[in-house]
Design a protein around this nucleic acid. Structure first.
Lengths: 127, 127
DNA sequence: TTGACATATTCTTATATGGGAATATACAGT
DNA sequence: ACTGTATATTCCCATATAAGAATATGTCAA
């Protein structure tokens, strides 16, 4: 297999910097025509159309035709999986002070792991 | 140009599901040998080594040799950019009740937009 | 040294880009 | 119908995978 399609999921879709830029333009929840996005992100129109196409296929944006314009709007809910996933690591940077706390938790976890008989590496040279 | 390298930045690195899985294994901050990761994620060892290589190049994990093992540890700080970016959209799902609030804000923004001279065509249609 | 184990690297191959250029499609106004 | 505007699509191409197989490298132990 090759790399997953950019439309495979949100994580792949937002991996592209320009797509994040485009999302940024729509962050206010307002709908915008393609041309407006083009002006704001300063990319060729075909490029923007393609990127919007990817975002649409993943559900991150929605479209509605209005006259000769296509109005795109952010569907932020689709970004929640990313937020949910990365929130697992929030504790690591929320308070720099918490490093001490982390250490403690780590030690605790370590102890539990040992008690549980979790077989880690074969060597038992670890303290 | 082709697609950006998976090692181009954290966003590209975590786009791969298996890599997120591997990160998940290291979420407790504990260091683990490659073999342990292999057992936990149930992927061929070369695949795991490659994925860990990508994560290491991006800085999401760190390695240290210990005997014949290579101990990998999560460096969660490198994931902060993702968290920071996606947090821009947090408000859209934090309280479902906030939809009302959003509407209000949207209206306000819309008004400002109009005043700014944003041209929105009239008429309403869909397919 | 020999052998067993742990991990990385080097192929190959099928697939998917993203950008640019050119073109097609759709719609609005006259 | 004709023209201008807005947006999407197609084609080409350089590049980068990710998985699998095979192999190489590195390290411990007897």
């Amino acid at each position: 297999m090759a790399r997953a399609a950019t439309t495979a999921d949100v994580f792949n879709a937002i991996a592209e910097p320009r797509r994040r830029e485009i999302i940024g333009v729509l962050v206010d929840g307002q709908e915008r025509a393609v041309g407006d996005v083009v002006r704001l992100v300063r990319l060729p129109q075909p490029a923007v159309s393609k990127h919007l196409g990817v975002l649409r296929r993943v559900g991150v944006v929605t479209v509605v035709k209005r006259g000769q314009h296509r109005m795109y709007r952010l569907n932020a809910a689709e970004l929640k999986p990313v937020h949910d996933w990365v929130r697992m690591f929030e504790k690591y940077w929320t308070h720099q002070i918490s490093r001490i706390k982390e250490r403690a938790e780590q030690k605790a976890a370590e102890a539990i792991g040992q008690a549980h008989g979790a077989k880690l590496s074969s060597g038992k040279n670890e303290e």
